[in-house]
Design a binder for these strands. Sequence first.
DNA 1: GCGTCCAGGTCTACC
DNA 2: GGTAGACCTGGACGC
Length: 286
Amino acid sequence: MPQTLFIDIPEDFSFRSTVYSHGWCDLAPFSLDTENWRLSYVFTDGKNSVPGVIAEEDGRLRIDLVKAKPRAEKVLADVRHILRLDDDLRDFYDVIQHNDRLRWVGKLRAGRLLRSPTVWEDLVKTICTTNCSWALTKNMVNNLVAKLGNKGAFPTAHAMASQDEEFYKQEIRSGYRGPYFIELAEKVVSGELDPQSWLHSDLPTAALKEEMKKVKGVGDYAAENLLKLVGRYDGLALDSWLRSQFYKNHNNGKTCKDIKIERHYRKFGEWRGLVIWCDMTEKWHA
DNA sequence: GCGTCCAGGTCTACC
DNA sequence: GGTAGACCTGGACGC
Protein backbone atom coordinates (compact mmCIF):
# COMPACT_ATOMS: atom_id res chain seq x y z
CA MET A 1 0.00 0.00 0.00
CA PRO A 2 1.37 3.47 -0.91
CA GLN A 3 2.47 5.66 1.95
CA THR A 4 3.11 9.39 2.33
CA LEU A 5 5.36 10.81 5.03
CA PHE A 6 6.09 14.39 6.06
CA ILE A 7 9.05 16.03 7.78
CA ASP A 8 9.29 19.56 9.17
CA ILE A 9 12.36 21.42 7.98
CA PRO A 10 14.70 23.77 9.83
CA GLU A 11 14.51 27.51 9.06
CA ASP A 12 17.93 27.66 7.45
CA PHE A 13 17.32 24.67 5.16
CA SER A 14 16.88 24.83 1.40
CA PHE A 15 15.74 21.70 -0.41
CA ARG A 16 17.03 22.87 -3.79
CA SER A 17 20.41 24.07 -2.53
CA THR A 18 20.95 20.81 -0.67
CA VAL A 19 19.87 18.54 -3.51
CA TYR A 20 22.03 20.46 -5.97
CA SER A 21 24.99 20.78 -3.62
CA HIS A 22 27.15 18.36 -5.61
CA GLY A 23 26.98 15.54 -8.11
CA TRP A 24 25.49 12.90 -5.79
CA CYS A 25 21.91 13.71 -6.92
CA ASP A 26 22.99 12.41 -10.32
CA LEU A 27 24.25 9.04 -9.08
CA ALA A 28 21.96 6.01 -8.75
CA PRO A 29 19.88 5.21 -6.84
CA PHE A 30 19.31 8.97 -6.67
CA SER A 31 17.69 10.71 -9.60
CA LEU A 32 16.58 14.30 -9.87
CA ASP A 33 13.62 15.76 -11.72
CA THR A 34 14.72 19.40 -12.05
CA GLU A 35 11.48 20.42 -13.74
CA ASN A 36 9.34 19.60 -10.72
CA TRP A 37 12.19 19.55 -8.20
CA ARG A 38 11.66 16.04 -6.99
CA LEU A 39 14.47 13.87 -5.71
CA SER A 40 14.00 10.14 -6.09
CA TYR A 41 15.86 7.52 -4.11
CA VAL A 42 15.47 3.79 -3.52
CA PHE A 43 15.37 3.24 0.24
CA THR A 44 16.40 -0.08 1.68
CA ASP A 45 16.83 -1.84 5.00
CA GLY A 46 18.90 -4.57 3.38
CA LYS A 47 15.88 -6.85 2.85
CA ASN A 48 13.09 -4.61 1.57
CA SER A 49 13.60 -1.82 -0.95
CA VAL A 50 11.17 0.91 -1.92
CA PRO A 51 11.43 3.76 -4.41
CA GLY A 52 10.59 7.09 -2.83
CA VAL A 53 10.09 10.61 -4.11
CA ILE A 54 11.06 13.58 -1.93
CA ALA A 55 9.69 17.05 -2.62
CA GLU A 56 9.12 20.32 -0.77
CA GLU A 57 5.47 21.09 -0.10
CA ASP A 58 4.02 23.87 2.04
CA GLY A 59 7.24 24.47 3.93
CA ARG A 60 7.89 20.85 4.76
CA LEU A 61 9.18 17.75 3.03
CA ARG A 62 6.81 15.24 1.51
CA ILE A 63 8.03 11.68 0.86
CA ASP A 64 5.90 9.43 -1.33
CA LEU A 65 6.56 5.69 -1.16
CA VAL A 66 4.89 3.02 -3.26
CA LYS A 67 4.68 0.64 -0.27
CA ALA A 68 5.10 0.67 3.49
CA LYS A 69 8.35 -1.27 3.76
CA PRO A 70 11.02 -0.50 4.85
CA ARG A 71 9.38 0.96 7.95
CA ALA A 72 8.51 4.64 8.04
CA GLU A 73 10.98 5.33 10.89
CA LYS A 74 13.83 4.00 8.77
CA VAL A 75 12.86 6.08 5.73
CA LEU A 76 12.40 9.24 7.81
CA ALA A 77 15.80 8.75 9.45
CA ASP A 78 17.39 8.22 6.03
CA VAL A 79 15.84 11.40 4.65
CA ARG A 80 17.03 13.41 7.65
CA HIS A 81 20.50 11.99 7.10
CA ILE A 82 20.82 12.45 3.34
CA LEU A 83 19.49 16.02 3.44
CA ARG A 84 21.47 16.81 6.62
CA LEU A 85 18.40 18.22 8.36
CA ASP A 86 20.07 17.96 11.76
CA ASP A 87 23.33 19.67 10.76
CA ASP A 88 24.02 22.94 12.57
CA LEU A 89 25.61 25.39 10.11
CA ARG A 90 25.15 28.59 12.15
CA ASP A 91 28.87 28.86 12.84
CA PHE A 92 29.62 28.35 9.13
CA TYR A 93 27.26 31.16 8.16
CA ASP A 94 28.86 33.39 10.81
CA VAL A 95 32.33 32.71 9.42
CA ILE A 96 31.41 33.68 5.85
CA GLN A 97 28.90 36.46 6.51
CA HIS A 98 31.33 39.33 5.88
CA ASN A 99 32.76 37.85 2.69
CA ASP A 100 31.23 39.45 -0.43
CA ARG A 101 31.93 36.48 -2.68
CA LEU A 102 30.13 34.15 -0.30
CA ARG A 103 27.13 36.25 0.63
CA TRP A 104 24.96 34.18 -1.69
CA VAL A 105 25.58 31.04 0.40
CA GLY A 106 23.64 32.34 3.38
CA LYS A 107 21.02 33.89 1.14
CA LEU A 108 20.32 30.57 -0.61
CA ARG A 109 20.82 28.61 2.61
CA ALA A 110 23.42 26.50 0.82
CA GLY A 111 26.14 24.46 2.52
CA ARG A 112 24.40 21.20 3.30
CA LEU A 113 26.06 18.54 1.12
CA LEU A 114 23.76 15.76 -0.04
CA ARG A 115 24.92 12.33 1.08
CA SER A 116 23.83 8.71 1.00
CA PRO A 117 22.01 7.03 3.91
CA THR A 118 25.15 5.03 4.70
CA VAL A 119 28.85 5.86 4.78
CA TRP A 120 29.37 2.55 2.98
CA GLU A 121 27.50 3.86 -0.06
CA ASP A 122 29.36 7.19 0.03
CA LEU A 123 32.66 5.36 0.33
CA VAL A 124 32.07 3.14 -2.70
CA LYS A 125 30.77 6.07 -4.74
CA THR A 126 33.76 8.20 -3.80
CA ILE A 127 36.14 5.49 -5.02
CA CYS A 128 34.14 5.54 -8.26
CA THR A 129 34.91 9.25 -8.68
CA THR A 130 38.68 8.83 -8.63
CA ASN A 131 40.86 8.96 -11.73
CA CYS A 132 38.04 9.03 -14.25
CA SER A 133 35.49 11.28 -15.90
CA TRP A 134 32.14 11.97 -14.30
CA ALA A 135 30.47 10.00 -17.10
CA LEU A 136 32.46 6.93 -16.12
CA THR A 137 31.63 7.43 -12.44
CA LYS A 138 27.93 7.45 -13.33
CA ASN A 139 28.38 4.37 -15.46
CA MET A 140 30.10 2.39 -12.71
CA VAL A 141 27.54 3.37 -10.06
CA ASN A 142 24.64 2.62 -12.43
CA ASN A 143 26.11 -0.83 -13.08
CA LEU A 144 26.58 -1.52 -9.37
CA VAL A 145 22.97 -0.65 -8.63
CA ALA A 146 21.52 -2.45 -11.66
CA LYS A 147 23.56 -5.64 -11.33
CA LEU A 148 24.07 -6.02 -7.58
CA GLY A 149 21.38 -3.92 -5.91
CA ASN A 150 18.16 -5.27 -4.42
CA LYS A 151 15.30 -3.90 -6.55
CA GLY A 152 17.08 -0.71 -7.52
CA ALA A 153 18.76 -0.03 -4.17
CA PHE A 154 22.48 0.45 -3.68
CA PRO A 155 24.18 -2.93 -3.18
CA THR A 156 25.06 -4.15 0.29
CA ALA A 157 28.58 -5.12 1.29
CA HIS A 158 27.42 -8.76 1.25
CA ALA A 159 26.32 -8.44 -2.37
CA MET A 160 29.55 -6.76 -3.39
CA ALA A 161 31.70 -9.28 -1.54
CA SER A 162 30.02 -12.13 -3.39
CA GLN A 163 31.48 -11.20 -6.78
CA ASP A 164 34.91 -11.80 -8.29
CA GLU A 165 37.36 -9.52 -10.10
CA GLU A 166 36.14 -10.63 -13.52
CA PHE A 167 32.61 -9.53 -12.66
CA TYR A 168 33.78 -6.05 -11.69
CA LYS A 169 35.89 -5.79 -14.83
CA GLN A 170 33.33 -7.05 -17.33
CA GLU A 171 29.99 -6.10 -15.76
CA ILE A 172 30.72 -3.02 -13.66
CA ARG A 173 33.46 -1.70 -15.98
CA SER A 174 35.33 -0.50 -12.91
CA GLY A 175 38.78 -1.42 -14.20
CA TYR A 176 41.52 -1.64 -11.59
CA ARG A 177 39.02 -0.77 -8.82
CA GLY A 178 37.53 -4.29 -8.79
CA PRO A 179 40.01 -5.79 -6.32
CA TYR A 180 39.60 -2.69 -4.12
CA PHE A 181 35.82 -3.19 -3.96
CA ILE A 182 36.15 -6.88 -3.12
CA GLU A 183 38.70 -6.26 -0.35
CA LEU A 184 36.60 -3.42 1.08
CA ALA A 185 33.34 -5.37 0.97
CA GLU A 186 34.93 -8.42 2.62
CA LYS A 187 36.31 -6.28 5.45
CA VAL A 188 32.89 -4.74 6.04
CA VAL A 189 31.14 -8.12 5.98
CA SER A 190 33.64 -9.61 8.43
CA GLY A 191 33.27 -6.65 10.78
CA GLU A 192 36.94 -5.72 10.43
CA LEU A 193 35.86 -2.32 9.05
CA ASP A 194 32.80 -0.27 10.00
CA PRO A 195 32.61 2.86 7.82
CA GLN A 196 29.39 3.91 9.59
CA SER A 197 31.39 4.43 12.79
CA TRP A 198 33.25 7.29 11.08
CA LEU A 199 30.13 9.40 11.53
CA HIS A 200 30.57 9.59 15.30
CA SER A 201 34.29 8.89 15.63
CA ASP A 202 36.17 10.49 18.52
CA LEU A 203 39.37 10.57 16.46
CA PRO A 204 40.84 13.93 15.49
CA THR A 205 40.25 14.67 11.81
CA ALA A 206 43.85 13.93 10.79
CA ALA A 207 43.71 10.51 12.45
CA LEU A 208 40.30 9.72 10.97
CA LYS A 209 41.62 10.66 7.54
CA GLU A 210 44.47 8.16 7.99
CA GLU A 211 41.89 5.51 8.94
CA MET A 212 39.98 6.22 5.77
CA LYS A 213 43.16 6.06 3.69
CA LYS A 214 43.71 2.50 4.87
CA VAL A 215 40.95 1.54 2.42
CA LYS A 216 42.53 0.72 -0.93
CA GLY A 217 41.53 3.30 -3.51
CA VAL A 218 41.11 6.05 -0.93
CA GLY A 219 43.83 8.69 -1.07
CA ASP A 220 43.96 12.32 0.03
CA TYR A 221 41.16 13.58 -2.20
CA ALA A 222 38.80 10.67 -1.51
CA ALA A 223 39.40 10.80 2.25
CA GLU A 224 38.79 14.55 2.42
CA ASN A 225 35.64 14.17 0.34
CA LEU A 226 34.41 11.49 2.76
CA LEU A 227 35.31 13.68 5.73
CA LYS A 228 33.00 16.35 4.32
CA LEU A 229 30.25 13.78 4.06
CA VAL A 230 30.66 12.82 7.73
CA GLY A 231 30.57 16.49 8.72
CA ARG A 232 34.24 17.50 8.94
CA TYR A 233 35.25 20.30 6.62
CA ASP A 234 38.88 21.07 7.42
CA GLY A 235 40.21 19.31 4.30
CA LEU A 236 39.84 20.93 0.89
CA ALA A 237 39.42 17.64 -1.08
CA LEU A 238 41.26 19.09 -4.05
CA ASP A 239 40.69 17.26 -7.30
CA SER A 240 41.34 18.30 -10.87
CA TRP A 241 37.91 19.94 -11.20
CA LEU A 242 38.20 21.97 -8.00
CA ARG A 243 41.72 23.06 -8.91
CA SER A 244 40.65 24.19 -12.39
CA GLN A 245 37.80 26.20 -10.88
CA PHE A 246 40.19 27.89 -8.45
CA TYR A 247 42.57 28.80 -11.29
CA LYS A 248 39.67 30.39 -13.18
CA ASN A 249 38.14 32.22 -10.23
CA HIS A 250 41.15 33.30 -8.23
CA ASN A 251 44.31 32.98 -10.33
CA ASN A 252 43.57 34.54 -13.75
CA GLY A 253 43.19 31.10 -15.30
CA LYS A 254 46.78 30.18 -14.50
CA THR A 255 47.75 27.01 -12.67
CA CYS A 256 49.37 27.27 -9.25
CA LYS A 257 50.55 24.99 -6.48
CA ASP A 258 48.07 23.52 -3.99
CA ILE A 259 49.75 25.45 -1.19
CA LYS A 260 48.43 28.69 -2.71
CA ILE A 261 44.88 27.31 -2.70
CA GLU A 262 45.33 26.17 0.88
CA ARG A 263 46.61 29.61 1.93
CA HIS A 264 43.61 31.25 0.27
CA TYR A 265 41.11 29.35 2.40
CA ARG A 266 43.13 29.00 5.61
CA LYS A 267 41.31 31.90 7.26
CA PHE A 268 38.05 29.93 7.22
CA GLY A 269 39.49 27.45 9.72
CA GLU A 270 37.57 24.23 10.24
CA TRP A 271 35.01 25.27 7.60
CA ARG A 272 37.52 25.79 4.77
CA GLY A 273 36.57 22.63 2.90
CA LEU A 274 32.94 23.69 2.77
CA VAL A 275 33.90 27.27 1.90
CA ILE A 276 35.98 26.27 -1.15
CA TRP A 277 33.22 23.96 -2.33
CA CYS A 278 30.57 26.68 -2.09
CA ASP A 279 32.94 29.25 -3.59
CA MET A 280 33.55 27.08 -6.66
CA THR A 281 29.94 25.98 -7.21
CA GLU A 282 28.13 29.32 -7.06
CA LYS A 283 27.15 29.11 -10.73
CA TRP A 284 25.29 25.85 -10.13
CA HIS A 285 22.87 27.72 -7.89
CA ALA A 286 22.37 30.71 -10.17
C1' DG B 1 39.45 5.10 -38.38
C1' DC B 2 43.34 5.49 -35.42
C1' DG B 3 46.37 7.27 -31.80
C1' DT B 4 46.81 10.22 -27.91
C1' DC B 5 45.31 12.56 -23.97
C1' DC B 6 43.15 12.92 -19.66
C1' DA B 7 39.34 13.05 -16.32
C1' DG B 8 36.18 14.94 -9.64
C1' DG B 9 43.74 9.92 -8.13
C1' DT B 10 45.96 6.14 -5.98
C1' DC B 11 49.28 2.49 -5.40
C1' DT B 12 53.77 0.54 -5.45
C1' DA B 13 58.59 0.27 -5.99
C1' DC B 14 62.48 2.62 -5.50
C1' DC B 15 65.58 6.08 -3.82
C1' DG C 1 59.23 11.19 2.86
C1' DG C 2 59.32 12.05 -1.81
C1' DT C 3 58.64 10.72 -6.62
C1' DA C 4 58.15 8.22 -11.21
C1' DG C 5 55.46 5.09 -13.56
C1' DA C 6 51.57 2.10 -13.98
C1' DC C 7 46.76 1.58 -13.81
C1' DC C 8 40.99 0.66 -16.25
C1' DT C 9 37.72 3.18 -18.88
C1' DG C 10 35.71 5.89 -22.42
C1' DG C 11 34.89 10.44 -24.46
C1' DA C 12 37.20 14.31 -26.84
C1' DC C 13 40.30 15.74 -29.99
C1' DG C 14 43.62 16.03 -33.85
C1' DC C 15 45.11 14.04 -37.93
